[in-house]
């Protein structure tokens, strides 16, 4: 289903969900939950947005049934830890590559995905100051290294 323009802000979170459907369904579930909550705040009035949100909700309910036994979905505190660990794992992988001077597409994507997952953590409540800083740094690094590689420069 085409993403309504009003939901552009969550398009990358939804893409991350798709990419994790098989790899880590818990991550996929919370990315969609984040998109759902954010989407409802952005626009739940126009028919195209409501239609999209209803489909997304159907998908979330199905996923929740399928993941029924998984504590990461049935218990908020476990889910929070799962997403935070995953976000930090991606962040640390990219950060290690960065510090080793190894710049490539995968590490850019890891920085960017980790920043999206720090957004997703907000479904569990307010982000810690540390996570806010990680998100800011990861997003900036992803943009900076991407620009350097595109222009043939070596990131500093």
């Amino acid at each position: 289903m085409a993403l309504p323009l009003q939901f552009k802000a969550v398009q990358h979170h939804l893409r991350t969900a798709q990419e994790h459907d098989k790899r880590d369904p818990v991550v996929a579930y919370y990315c969609r939950l984040y998109a759902m909550q954010t989407g409802m705040k952005l626009d739940s009035k126009t028919p195209e947005c409501r239609k999209f949100l209803v489909k997304l909700m159907d998908q979330l309910e199905t996923m929740k049934k399928e993941l029924g036994d998984n504590e990461s979905v049935s218990q908020e505190v476990v889910g929070n830890a799962h997403i935070e660990n995953y976000a930090l794992k991606m962040f640390l992988y990219a950060d290690n590559e960065d510090r080793a001077g190894s710049f490539h597409k995968n590490m850019i994507k890891s920085f960017y995905t980790s920043s999206l997952l720090f957004d997703v953590l907000s479904v569990f409540g307010e982000l810690s100051e540390e996570n806010i800083q990680h998100r800011k740094y990861a997003r900036w690094k992803a943009t900076y290294i991407h620009t350097c590689l595109k222009e043939g420069e070596t990131p500093v």
């Binding site: 409501r50 949100l53 909700m57």
Partner: peptide, 27 residues
């Protein structure tokens, strides 16, 4: 018909909110 349309929209929004609450309730 405008008010019927907006009533339907409001009902659908309420339903979405309650489904979301239910989804999160068991977390």
């Amino acid at each position: 018909s405008g008010s019927v349309g907006s009533s339907v929209a409001a009902a659908e929004q309420d339903e979405l909110s309650s489904r979301l609450a239910k989804l999160r309730d068991q977390m």
